[in-house]
Design a binder for these strands. Structure first.
Lengths: 160, 160
DNA sequence: CGCAATTCAATTGCGCACAACTCAATAGCG
DNA sequence: CGCTATTGAGTTGTGCGCAATTGAATTGCG
């Protein structure tokens, strides 16, 4: 009457499901909390730090590209970039060859902040208490499930 | 000059760090997107669904207990519970024996919603494209890192 | 007992995520 | 060429997450 070992009944699924979303939620917020502490004296929030990482690595970018790297839309990025500009870390300028596009570039202050941000990763790594290989395994699993979820979303509304 | 294999230099750390926070962010939002679709016809958001899960499993609870299960404070829960109340899914009543406490209980409608929510976990499981064992492994890793991060936070502000 | 400290929920304020929409600029088709 | 469709950024509105504060109720210590 019961299902096969790897096809649990609905009660098990409810419990597993709850644990996965609980765990993911908790982990996401735990990371956020650590980053918040580590980034506090840089004057950055976690999403702002992600944007700065992208700019430090890739140099000047239009808003569109930043959004592609971080999977964020203009509704999130526009006010965030305005705050970074108000903080003196970036400039925003309309592109001359395409007036629709806005190029985001680092100021001297924004580029200089990279030095101070260098210590963040090592402190975060230490805070996780995990060896590098396990973090890599975690990242790989997360990427795998993200890809699967993204491809699954479209045909999901109806019934699939 | 280079460090030992499992003590990478700062460049590697910067890259790894970025990938970890990118991956976790992306996974969290990918889950959110799938839940948003699956929960749409239930009229629930993802955090509201988590609250309902807790109530379905544990019955009536004071706000404090819900917050402990979900690691959320009253600043998040108060407006969320008001919306659930406005939707007719829960009641909120001051406890007679302790006027500070507010007990949240399911309405008939809220309890009935559980039937329709039963299909969510299996559809989510299918959307991940991962076998149950891998999801369990993912959950275990997430729980481990969450625990480590939580215990690390206190002594982090200064330098640790 | 009486008063200070603590507890619980609610509120305020800020920032992020996302959907829906607006508006200007560009691309591209007939 | 002209007109429509598309693109890129921004705005608005809703909801979540968190810090800080408020205010009432309770606890507990002297």
């Amino acid at each position: 009457m019961t299902a096969l070992p790897d096809v649990p009944d609905d009660t098990d699924l409810l419990r597993l499901d709850r644990q996965i979303c609980f765990s993911l939620n908790a982990a996401s917020r735990a990371f956020g909390g650590v980053y918040r502490v580590l980034l506090k004296d840089l004057g950055l929030t976690y999403p702002q730090y992600l944007v700065m990482l992208v700019l430090w690595e890739h140099g000047d970018l239009p808003v569109k590209r930043i959004g592609e790297y971080l999977r964020l839309d203009s509704g999130t990025l526009s006010p965030l970039l305005k705050r970074l500009e108000a903080a003196g870390l970036v400039r925003r300028e309309r592109s001359p060859e395409d007036e629709r596009s806005v190029t985001v570039s680092l100021t001297g202050e924004g580029a200089a902040l990279r030095e101070r941000a260098d210590r963040v990763p090592r402190r975060l790594l230490a805070a996780t208490g995990l060896p590098v290989e396990e973090l890599s395994a975690l990242r790989a699993l997360l990427d795998q499930v993200t890809l699967a979820l993204d491809t699954a979303v479209p045909g999901l509304a109806a019934d699939e």
